[in-house]
Amino acid sequence: MAKKRMIQAINEALDGEMQRDKKLILFGEDVEISLFGDTKGLVDKYGTDRIRNTPISETVMSGMAVGAAAAGFNVVCHMMFGNFMYTGFDSIANQASKLRYMTAGQISLPIVYMSVFGGGRSAAAQHSDAMHPLFMNLGGLKVVTPSSPMDAAGLLRASIRDPNPVIYLQAAGRGGELGEVPDEEFIVELGKAAVLRNGEDLTIVAIGAMVRPALRSVDFQKTEGVSIELIDPRTLVPLDKEMIFKSVRKTGRLIIVDEARDTCSAASHIAALCAEECFSALKAPIKRVTVNDIAIPYSPPLEKNVLPNEERINNTVSEILKFA
């Protein structure tokens, strides 16, 4: 094991997969010089046939991924910011997510659409969305939201090797976060949640960048005598429902922390599932800590207030524990 930054772990995973799979190609805007550092150095190693700088043309990029994948290549389509997936949304929503089903399984589409997502850096409304629920709702896409360097690498390898289209969303601005990463190549299977803290009184499910404030809250609550189980689903499609149900049946209380806007958030979906499946175990209403249904503001005090944080999680814990 060695401590690595998230972005370095991703870079190494991409490098390893390019090495392993000669049919793997990667393209996107400025992936040669690499804005975030995730694709740094790849072009020097694998050449401009397989690592391609594209024009700013998300519409054709997302569709090109579908065509190249259908024709036998394994594709990483780098979309930079999650909001630019909207610009390339047509081929993701109308083609990638549906083509295998519509053609009765004639093809598989091994594509990873990758980008950063979420706010917190005054990047304003058009660079800050956490749009994973949109992709979850399409049905034919896997949705991956790593929260640690180790998961970022392990899930990326699994995503690239998966024969289906995967949306891989890395928390924006968190590339510098450090974490232990195994030296040998490893895979984190899609659809397996991680229990980050064991607890008895309450379950918190936290997604992507929300894991960090949730961890702080859980550790603080422990000093207050509240024992919280913290689960990172790691992938939202497929979702490790059983792991979440098991925990909620044990604790009887559930908070979901999600950076998506509230309406139809991943939190809403998880809350609905638990309400249906764990009803008799529940001792209190399920609570969601999410983003109000607004565009993410630029000004720091406004943005800070909109995004879920440790304080809001703590308040919600107190609220929920009031139900005896």
Binding site: Y86, T87, A125, Q126, A295, P297, Y298, S299
Partner: peptide, 21 residues
């Protein structure tokens, strides 16, 4: 303060605005 550098707009002056996309 909602928009910032990439979103300055003044419709009274016919400035539909800057754009992040």
């Amino acid at each position: 303060g909602r928009g910032g550098s990439m979103h300055v707009a003044d419709f009274s002056k016919g400035i539909i605005g800057a754009n992040g996309i």
